[in-house]
Amino acid sequence: MVFDQSSLLLQQLVNGITLGGVYALIAVGYTMVYGVIQLINFAHGEIYMLAAFVALTLITQCHIPFFASFFITIGICGCLGVVLDYIAYRPIRKSPRLAALITAIGMSIFLQNLALILWGGQIHSFPQDVLPKIFTKIAINFSDVIVTWLEVFILCVTVCSMFILHYIITRTKIGIAMRAISQDKVTASLMGIPVNRVISFTFFIGSALGGVAGILVGIYYNAVFPTMGYVAGIKAFAAAVLGGIGSVPGAMLGGWVLGITEVLGAGYFSSEYRDGISYAVMILVILFKPSGLIGKPLPQKV
């Protein structure tokens, strides 16, 4: 009896870690943009949703193999982020923050409904034969805890993306430029950093990671629909806040904590309030500890 329960718990933990990794990927996008230009990029969730749709279209309509379309989609999403920044956020960079926030909400609605027009409101799914066969096979079966190769893949991609991101931020020149801008935009521009280009790059990286998450979730749940970005976006934002917005390691940690909390909460508490758990976590964190889990003490802002 106890054995069964603990294996259930383990299974839920595995699900939570998978989901949390995805949240972490999206949350990184939020937190990077927030770190650089102090804007909650509401439209980030929509980029995640568009990624799933683009990948789906590439695979089913253009018949491009899965891994190729995976990378093409990531590129497209990154560019989409840059375009978003260019047309929506750059013109109002000097206006009050509320104006930027309202613009972000506007863009979010615009993109969501654009997807609704282009692809329709119904739930799409990836046809099973186009995905690599190995995804559905079981990788680990340890006392009733089943881990599929898909989950392993998601985890690997997530962790790899994180490491690449960490390398970019801490070791490369552009990463240092990002951190400089997050400290002080004016001084950074005086030091000869091309501020707008670096911000565009930040959007590129953030959106590309969001795109990765979008494809992964699309094949994990095998459901792609226009409103998927809205809920996931908010949850990822909750994760970013939980970790401490503006801090990249915080976003990663927050993503996993939130993912595990949500899955465990849905399993043992109430599956109807699954989304509510993340909202509640978000509200409580903002009210009681706005700096998040590792916000202030580790000021690695980007």
Binding site: V2, Q5, L9, L264
Partner: peptide, 24 residues
């Protein structure tokens, strides 16, 4: 109690939360 372990985790979580709130 069947859900003993999880329940304990949950209660711990709640109390950690409480202490956090109070501390804040």
């Amino acid at each position: 109690t069947v859900f003993k372990l999880e329940l304990c985790l949950f209660v711990t979580f709640i109390f950690a939360l409480r202490i956090l709130v109070i501390k804040y």
